[in-house]
């Protein structure tokens, strides 16, 4: 069966992920033999359009970070295809590329990490951190390199005079800007943002979010925005994908997903978002038990042991992704039949 989530590799699509799998072995006992597998990403399907922000959300351990890193080939996928629409080479299958070939693609896909403290080498100056991608790819040298780094720092709102300083001299928000400058250095097309604002204070979060929006507009960037903060994701994303235990459960345009979710798990997430409005106090939807284990997931739909709408079929059959409405997919046997609550829109 052809998966409906997959676009027809059209010109407006930049990245297409199909049935992506990433398993980690679990070793135990005295001789550290394999005793199981963590299915961190277990058959993920999604596509990212050029110039859009696709939010990838889910709770800790659902595989969203692993998905982002596997797409970047920072981790080797266990299975599936990752197709990237390279501006020079056209459609390429990233999972088949060797190191040499990946090097030619890498300038077009970059990543921004969550922790601005551990993602910058404390022994490198800001100049070396931001210039490293330019040097490695032999883009610039000498005065030109200097000018380019100064320009990048200005673009992210840092003063070029600071380029000889070390990361410790900067605050969390400024460090995140250094990480963004490094990601921008090679004029990428796609940036995977892995929780880029979760380590920052509220007022600084807004500065970095606005910066990311401005950069997207100015440089026509495409973001895969991995985050757990649903309010931030709603703000920045055009479309949102929800993951649960390594799988995609719902994918839709942001407003559709937030106002009219089509998967019971998304419904529970939306009810749980702490709304900054004392008139919108909701009782949460009780999810019994714990998040399913990625080592021994339940049969059928992974969410069924916690789902209040579950019927017999849910424990036996794995629900396929269904298109419920145009551009709205849900992996639920009863998608479209349930009357699920979303966030009440305000103005």
């Amino acid at each position: 069966m052809i998966d409906p989530v997959i676009a027809q590799s059209g010109d407006d699509v930049l990245l297409e992920v199909k049935d992506l799998k990433k398993y980690f072995p679990v070793r135990g006992g005295f001789i550290k033999k394999g005793v199981g597998t963590v299915k961190a990403v277990d058959g993920l399907n999604l596509f990212v359009k050029k110039g859009e922000t696709l939010g990838l959300v889910g709770e800790s351990g659902c595989g969203k970070t692993t998905a982002g890193r596997t797409i970047m080939r920072l981790m080797e996928p266990t299975g599936g295809t990752i197709r990237f629409n390279d501006p020079k080479q056209g459609w390429v299958n990233l999972e088949k590329m060797n190191r040499q070939q990946m090097r030619a693609i890498r300038p077009n896909m970059q990543i921004i990490f969550q922790d601005p403290f551990s993602s910058l080498d404390p022994r490198m100056t800001v100049f070396r951190i931001v210039s490293e991608p330019l040097v490695i790819n032999k883009v610039a040298s000498g005065q030109e390199l200097n000018d380019r780094v100064a320009e990048l720092l200005r673009v992210v709102g840092l003063r070029p005079e600071y380029m000889s300083r070390y990361p410790h001299a900067f605050s969390g928000g400024q460090r995140q800007r250094i990480g963004i400058a490094r990601a921008l250095a090679l004029n990428p097309k796609l940036i995977v943002c892995d929780e880029p604002v979760s380590a920052l204070d509220v007022s600084i979060q807004a500065q970095v979010i606005n910066l990311l929006e401005d950069l997207q507009h100015d440089f026509k960037l495409t973001y895969l925005f991995v985050a757990h903060d649903l309010s931030v994701v709603e703000h920045i994303s055009n479309r949102v994908a929800v993951m649960y235990v390594g799988r995609l459960v719902e994918l839709a345009k942001t407003d559709d997903l937030y106002y009219t979710p089509q998967h019971p798990y998304t419904e529970a997430l939306m009810a749980a978002v702490p709304k900054p409005d004392p008139h919108m106090r909701d009782r949460p939807i009780k999810l019994p038990g714990e998040v399913a284990s990625a080592i021994k997931p339940p049969s059928g739909c992974y969410f069924h042991p916690r789902c209040r709408y579950a019927k017999d079929i849910c424990s036996t059959e794995d629900p396929p992704l269904k298109m419920v409405r145009p551009e709205h997919w849900s992996a639920c046997h009863f998608a479209g039949e349930l009357n699920l609550r979303g966030i009440v829109p305000t103005n």
Partner: peptide
């Protein structure tokens, strides 16, 4: 003003401090 409000229909730019 600096936090995104879940459910807001229009895309308001955040006003950072």
């Amino acid at each position: 003003n600096s936090i995104p409000h879940a459910g807001s229909r229009e895309h308001k730019r955040l006003l950072p401090i």
